[in-house]
Design a protein around this nucleic acid. Sequence first.
DNA 1: TAACTATTTTACCAAATAGCCAAATACCTG
DNA 2: CAGGTATTTGGCTATTTGGTAAAATAGTTA
Lengths: 99, 99
Amino acid sequence: MKKEIEQKYYREAEIMKALAHPTRLFILHSLKDGEKCVCELTDEIGDDISTVSKHLLILKNAGLVEANRKKNWMYYKLSAPCVLDIGKCVINKVIKKKR
Amino acid sequence: MKKEIEQKYYREAEIMKALAHPTRLFILHSLKDGEKCVCELTDEIGDDISTVSKHLLILKNAGLVEANRKKNWMYYKLSAPCVLDIGKCVINKVIKKKR
DNA sequence: TAACTATTTTACCAAATAGCCAAATACCTG
DNA sequence: CAGGTATTTGGCTATTTGGTAAAATAGTTA
């Protein structure tokens, strides 16, 4: 595998890795109608807030969400809402096939 | 997070996990024009054949590729070619943003 | 059946990931 | 500045992942 190709797929894989966790997928979909603070997401998810915060960091590092602070609260929103359509085709085909 | 939702995203995350490795992304794109045997893919990739075989197993378990044997060779092909378009939008936006 | 080729599986190690708690930080408000 | 709320970070443990080499399996062909 050539170096350039390897790098291209490495970068793509990073994004996929960020998407490869149920909680993070949930967060993204939960943000579809606009920004939410960490505490809102934490309530919805039910994990420790530090866990949620770390998931958000992973999504942010992948470039999938953006953060901005308002007073005490940190609000997160989708940076590319089209992320919600990701793999729709594949997911439908493949999940149907499995059951 | 409700049980049903959790399960839905768990299943989706499994697919994303399968996509979350450079070698596996390379394999999928390498199969775009049709099936290939493990040895061809191994040549292209340059890893140990057992490593490539494991990546293929992961892709197969995720339902992304299908295998069929012809004589000594095991041929793999895409089960849903639309996997190649996965996250095109996100990848373009997000990767552009990063550099 | 025996020898051979291609692939998969097993055993093992190193590195990465996910989760929680506790401590640290950031910001607001009195 | 002191006290309070929201979030992030660090440290720890347990689990998962990715890689290799060696052994096992599947199928072909002499």
